[in-house]
Amino acid sequence: MRAILTTVGQDKTGIVAGVSGFLAEKEINILDLSQTILNGYFTMMMVVDVPDDADFTALSSELKDLGKKLGVEINIRNEKMYAAMHELSGGLE
Rank of each mutant, 00 (worst) to 15 (best):
M1Y: 05
R2W: 09
R2H: 14
R2C: 02
A3W: 01
L5S: 01
V8Q: 03
G9T: 05
Q10S: 12
Q10D: 14
Q10E: 14
D11S: 03
D11R: 00
D11K: 01
K12Q: 10
T13H: 13
T13E: 14
T13K: 13
G14V: 01
G14Y: 04
V16I: 14
A17K: 07
G18P: 09
S20H: 05
G21F: 05
G21P: 10
F22E: 00
E25Y: 06
K26T: 00
K26H: 04
K26I: 01
K26E: 10
E27Y: 09
I28L: 00
N29T: 03
N29C: 02
L31E: 14
D32R: 05
D32F: 02
D32C: 08
L33T: 06
L33C: 06
S34Q: 13
S34V: 02
S34I: 00
Q35P: 06
T36A: 12
N39V: 05
G40Y: 03
G40L: 04
G40C: 09
Y41N: 12
F42Q: 07
T43K: 09
M46Q: 13
V47A: 12
V48Y: 04
D49R: 07
D49L: 10
V50Y: 07
P51D: 05
D52K: 15
D53H: 10
D55G: 09
F56D: 13
T57M: 10
T57I: 11
A58K: 15
L59Y: 09
S60N: 15
S60Q: 15
E62T: 13
K64C: 09
K64A: 14
D65G: 10
L66H: 13
L66Y: 12
L66I: 04
L66A: 12
L66G: 14
K68R: 14
K68D: 15
K69R: 15
L70W: 00
L70R: 01
V72S: 08
V72D: 05
I74L: 08
N75C: 07
I76E: 05
R77P: 00
R77Q: 07
N78C: 02
N78Q: 11
N78P: 11
K80H: 08
K80P: 04
M81K: 06
M81R: 07
Y82C: 00
Y82N: 00
Y82I: 02
A84R: 03
A84Q: 11
M85N: 09
H86Y: 12
E87F: 01
L88W: 10
G90E: 10
G91Q: 11
E93S: 14
